[in-house]
């Protein structure tokens, strides 16, 4: 079984976001780029599965749609332990464009398990994984918090309101993974960093697809009013504010 892990290149969460070109784009100057946190956990779980020889996972490939500027993020994924990488050489205009590109690659190369993070921390779309599966006409399971391979068959945990379900689905399929899929992201060891330099990154030119959406303006959230402090010995005052000013209790 071969696993494909989709990774997105996003600004580190602690980066201060600034806008450029009249608030129509994110200012990339000074941004620290990282693997999208959910994709990093997804990659970690894929590698854990491969480490278990009984799982029958042959390889873990990462795929990214982006320009050469994303190379460091791809190398990081390889350093963490992916066997090889595919980069579709294009600006990732929107979810539709990205999903269409990845689906096109999967049509040509066989993968049984395709893993996507449930969301990217930049556009917070939660749509690419589901789109890939529909472009391919294969099943998808969303909100997956665990994947095991038992007797060659994937067994998933799907999070539902107030609980979880054990779900089976035949391969090939797309697993859209969330918190819980791996405990902590795997960190690249020095050996991995050295090896990553010689691992193959296949470059693929995009197919022609028109994006469906476009951000025309960014704005900052409205600033919140300054915090009103209440004396620690007088919590009744806090309740008074919550009852009569905020009217929330």
């Amino acid at each position: 079984m071969k696993i494909l892990v989709c990774i997105s290149n996003v600004p580190d969460t602690t980066t201060k976001i600034k806008f450029a070109e009249g608030n129509t784009s994110i200012d990339t100057a000074g941004i620290q780029w990282v693997i999208n946190p959910w994709d990093e956990l997804s990659l970690t779980r894929a590698l854990e599965l491969k480490d278990d020889v009984t799982s029958g996972i042959k390889s873990v490939t990462v795929i990214h749609v982006g320009t050469a500027a994303s190379e460091p993020t791809i190398r990081k994924a390889l350093a963490i332990g992916a066997d090889d990488a595919i980069r579709v050489n294009a600006i990732s205009s929107d979810a539709w464009f990205v999903a269409a590109q990845i689906a096109e690659v999967v049509k040509k190369e066989q993968f049984e398990l395709i893993m996507c993070g449930i969301e990217s921390s930049d556009y917070n779309g939660s749509i690419v994984g589901g789109m890939i599966s529909e472009f391919l006409g294969i099943p998808s399971v969303s909100a997956v918090s665990d994947i095991k391979i038992e007797n060659g068959q994937p067994v998933l945990i799907r999070e539902i309101d107030g609980g979880k379900e054990v779900v089976n689905v035949p391969v090939p399929f797309v697993a859209i993974v969330q918190k819980g899929i791996a405990k902590e992201p795997r960190i690249a060891a020095m050996r991995g960093i050295m090896m990553a330099r010689s691992k193959p990154v296949k470059l693929i030119e995009p197919v022609a697809v028109d994006p469906m959406t476009q951000v025309v303006e960014f704005e900052k959230p409205a600033p919140r009013a300054a915090c009103k402090f209440v004396d620690a010995d007088n919590p009744a005052q806090l309740l008074d504010l919550l009852q009569n000013e905020a009217k929330v209790i």
């Binding site: 939660s126 749509i127 589901g130 789109m131 529909e134 969303s142 859209i176 469906m212 959406t213």
Partner: peptide
């Protein structure tokens, strides 16, 4: 999140999420 992107592809409809 599970169904909206699949409907999107079926109907060639763009998604505004969240």
């Amino acid at each position: 999140k599970a169904i909206a992107p699949r409907i999107s592809v079926r109907l060639k409809a763009g998604v505004g999420s969240g």
